[in-house]
Amino acid sequence: MKYVCSVCGYVYDEEVEGVPFSELPDDWACPMCKAPKSLFFAEDSEKDDVKTEHIDVIDEDMTEIPPLVLSQIFSNLARGCEKQYKENESKLFTELSEYYRKASGNIENPSTTVIAEKLSEDLSSLYPTLRERSEMLKDRGALRVTVWGEKVTRMALSLVDRYEKEGSSFLDNTKIWVCSICGFIYIGDTPPAICPVCKVPDWKFECIEGGNV
């Protein structure tokens, strides 16, 4: 039997490896992207068995954009201006982004459980809705952002889950990297040679500073 990593596509072939997948230790991780065992699926099973309970989400009123989303729109447009070599406008958009970042309220009793719930909701209903619509409308760009986003979100959720189960010691003496293009989070002393999700080279990874490395 073969098992496939749902983040990077790495294949674990029991025949080649000689060890049944089920007998691998719990802390075994994908050699390519470090995704945990739970993010692998058996090759002959339908991938969709990674259950997606699909509720059609009610469409929100588009006129009400919360401040932090405004901040994200503007930091994105700042990047867009940078790519167009419009430095001045990029700076103006960055200021707007920072303004709305500050204007955005804090979360009462922030906890990793809240984050895990949100990430799970992304995976169980919000991404499936976007996927369905992108496929129906043949919007390949929206489909791309769905494929990347689902993988990045799965990885983020598995890390938050791991923290909730065993605390933060698994991050002792190792670095945390984020791909500056797709947002993929990677734990390791050096970043992967190419991003397992969006395939950019290692120098596109940012090291998350602070802490006891």
Partner: peptide, 27 residues
């Protein structure tokens, strides 16, 4: 400190994913 780094990574990741989403949403 480890949790702080992990949370900074999650925050950064969520922002990057959202920026990419918003590009596909017309921005």
């Amino acid at each position: 400190k480890n949790l702080a780094r992990l949370m900074k990574a999650v925050a950064r990741s969520s922002r990057l994913v959202s920026e990419d989403l918003l590009r596909e949403g017309g921005y």
